[in-house]
Amino acid sequence: MNILVCIKQVPDMESRFKVAASGTWFEESDLAWRINEYDEFAIEQAVQLKTEVSGADLTVLSIGPARVKEALKKALAMGCDRAVNLVDEAAHEKDSFQIASAIAAFAKEKNFDLIFTGMQSQDRGSGQVGVLVAEMLGIPALTTAVEFAYADNSVTVRRELEGGLRAAIKASTPALVSCQLGLNTPRYPTLPNIMKAKRKEMLEIPVADLLKEEARLTTLSLAYPEKKGSAQILEGDVADLVDQVIGILKEKTAVL
């Protein structure tokens, strides 16, 4: 069985973002980077599946500049067999359609039985790439998976809908599954596996070899939200803060 996992490296969301001089993206220096949260669920599911079926081969792919190799190394240490970096210094300027086109071009003749993606990226949150890749390859996309099972060339997924409702759906492989929070608990790479990962294959392909499409979406600007009814901010010594908060609760609420 041939499995592909697509991961994106995103900034730590607790970072202080600064809008870049271009005015359309954020300053990338001084940020800590990590694997998109949803994509860790994708890696974990693929690694679990690999242990269930014999002879599975697991490729992890990421489009982006050299720094994404750190994310790929972690995925290798979690249990992926090989990594592919579609090298793109300007990945942040590509829209979801272009990212999906590059992934689909890579996957095209490789006959992946299953492709795992996250349901959305935390920085862009478009929720498009997974479904687009599946459509481009002409395979079913099963989105928002919170439960996954594989047996006899078919996948069964529980999709999460709104209001506590789930839908069970099934499709034959090849198929693509987009992973939602709660699907599993991603493992931490162990030291021996981190060492082993160093010997695994890391392939680099310039994105231009695979991507021929123009962007369909134009970013006009990126900015901090306009502050609406903004909060009163309290800073300082914890003991003082506690007193201030009790004062405010007494004054402005009826709970104390």
Binding site: S96, G125, S126, Q128, V131, L132, A141, T144, E160, R216
Partner: peptide
């Protein structure tokens, strides 16, 4: 859950840009 599942399929078929959320 309905929209993010369907919208990219329709966008691709129409060669249209998708603007999410």
């Amino acid at each position: 859950s309905n929209g993010w599942d369907l919208a990219p399929r329709v966008a691709l078929a129409l060669s249209a840009a998708q603007i999410s959320e």
